[in-house]
Amino acid sequence: MGDEENPAALVEHQPSWPRRASRLLSEIRDALAGLTGGETAALDHIGSTAVPGLPAKPFLDLQLRISPLPGEADLCGRLDRLGFVRARGARPDSPGVDRDIPRGSAQADPAVWEKLLFWHEDEHAILHVRRADSPWGLYTIWFRDWLRASPEARHRYETEKRRLSAEQRGKADYDDYTRAKTEFFDQVQSEFETWSSNRP
């Protein structure tokens, strides 16, 4: 799937993505039974595959927001049975593997940025496990919903994604693409935050 010479190759939006995400999130929910915080955990389909009409890398981005953040061994034992394995990143400094990049200065507790990342090879799915009070966890929801609601914002993001994707041809991984997309996120954060605060 995608372009073998470009690790950040994009494909057109697939109608099957939301259905697959819903099925996987349901399976994850069942796997959380008995886990501290599992009953109140939030499970989300995030990222570009969650935005109709938006091209994306063909990997589903899923999110689990839970408090407290589970121990790695306990969570691995539950998710392994579903086919999710702990992801370590392509490089030692791969972004967003054990920790999100802190944003702003409002959060004094550095633990709020900690996370666990899992990968499902057969489903081509990534699971981001964050604390329920993670700012990144909330931003992903606001950003997704803003893109869904605004054709103009979606077009801007698609244009940027296509430009950045083209620059990744011949690279070994898509870490540079991920970092570059974060710069776009920085540019528009005030827009989607304002939009989110004003919606009913």
Rank of each mutant, 00 (worst) to 15 (best):
Y139F: 14
A106L: 09
W119Q: 02
N198P: 13
V129L: 07
E39M: 11
I66N: 07
R131Y: 03
L127F: 00
R91N: 14
L164S: 09
L54R: 07
E193K: 14
E114Q: 08
S165A: 15
G2K: 15
E4V: 15
L35W: 03
S197K: 14
R162Y: 07
P52G: 13
H124E: 12
D100V: 00
L116I: 02
E27I: 01
L10W: 10
V85I: 05
E121I: 07
P58I: 09
A180N: 08
G104K: 10
A108Y: 09
A172N: 02
P151G: 08
D3T: 12
S196Y: 08
L147Y: 03
Y177K: 10
F143D: 06
W113P: 01
Q14R: 13
R156Y: 04
I28Q: 06
T159Y: 07
A50N: 11
E158Q: 15
Q107V: 11
L25H: 05
A41Q: 06
P55V: 07
F84I: 04
M1L: 12
P102T: 05
M1K: 12
D122P: 05
W119L: 05
V129D: 01
A56P: 08
I66M: 02
D61Q: 15
E167M: 15
I141L: 14
E12V: 13
E191T: 13
